[in-house]
Design a protein around this nucleic acid. Structure first.
Lengths: 207, 207
DNA sequence: GTCTATATAAAGATAGAC
DNA sequence: GTCTATCTTTATATAGAC
């Protein structure tokens, strides 16, 4: 007979946090299949069997991680709303997405890894929650266009372009660094990117 | 004593092609670590030991694949040149890159996988050949800007944005499909994307 | 060149002592 | 809760017959 699920103690919660933090490091760098429980255990400062005392399997760690990730990841799009000034709203969304790429590059890469492999674990979420959210925001953008507040264009591809350009700085970080060279490292790169993306998107949207 | 490397017969070349084609399928879908020689052998229609008769190791298959990939991948940027009309030149580059995403999505994903994992195998190429190529093209773009032919902006981030937006349609294909739904499948999506990207980039670059 | 059989190593997961 | 030892599965690669 199975024992009923017990609420976790505070200490158990904290240990799980340590493991998830370590797993984010490892999984985002090597992908799910490319990572080993040993690596995660090492990064978390504990033995493999000890780690498996807190999570039943590698799969369960990954699932827990993805669940949280998606919440964080969709937050900026949720914030995007029908404000007074469309340009301010879109500019803010771009800035928040770029800040996410800067502050949460591991999350960005973990997400990219999952999508790249065909999104086996989150397909239903993409077709459900994500699609509905994007549909809603696309309707807002279209309303702005009909009202003549911004130039007419395809709202879906506009959103894709914002995702692509901002996440690029996290997902393709090593390439960006290699091309820009050591001169333009750190914070400066993000300021340059922010300026450029504002010019690109806002320039083309002004009616 | 080692036997000297012999030139490959035509049949050997053909078998290697079959293997590389299968490997591209498998590696681009699951990443290098996520793929097994068994899968590649199955896809190539031969047994594992037979496959390993043509390639010494999984690593060697991957290396051969990456080498070719990079040649193909940089071709559009090589073509980008100092023509009469900057707008035509940039528009052509965007179109070629988007066509690559449409016609060679596996290559795009294989490349994305490699970069995402920190580009361990091609770092020196990124810092060498790629950087020099981009530097050269950035100088051309800057010349156009100084001549007042296009609006002033950061040429490096412009190139990154073109890479990001076009490759997005290959790398994040499942997400794009999920969000757009089944209505907008196949060729139509790429036409929409082409129209949008032209408006985005050309609109912002017109002086 | 291709096969069956197998050596070898890595990785996920568990048993059971403490 | 944490450890050492170990089981099991999977995967890379090789040996050797044909």
């Amino acid at each position: 007979m199975e024992t009923a699920a017990r609420p976790l103690t505070r200490i158990q919660q904290e240990k799980r946090e340590v493991i998830l933090e370590a797993a984010l490091d490892v999984f985002s760098a090597s992908g799910f299949r490319g990572s080993t429980i040993d690596q995660v255990a090492d990064a978390a400062g504990m033995s493999k069997p000890n780690l498996l005392y807190y999570f039943r399997s590698k799969e369960e760690i990954h699932a827990t991680l993805m669940e949280r990730l998606l919440h964080t990841w969709l937050a900026p799009l949720h914030e995007f709303d029908d404000g007074d000034d469309p340009i301010t709203e879109i500019r803010g969304y771009i800035r928040r997405k770029l800040e996410m790429a800067r502050d949460f590059p591991r999350e960005s890469r973990l997400f990219a890894n999952e999508i790249l492999q065909g999104a086996p674990r989150i397909m239903s979420l993409l077709e459900g929650e994500l699609k509905q959210l994007v549909d809603k925001k696309a309707r807002i953008i279209r309303k702005w266009m009909r009202a003549g507040k911004i130039a007419r264009t395809d709202p879906y591809h506009l959103i894709f372009a914002i995702w692509a350009t901002t996440q690029h700085y996290a997902d393709f970080d090593v390439q960006v660094r290699a091309v820009l060279g050591p001169d333009r490292d750190g914070e400066g790169r993000f300021e340059d990117a922010a300026r450029f993306l504002e010019q690109l998107f806002i320039g083309c949207l002004k009616a």
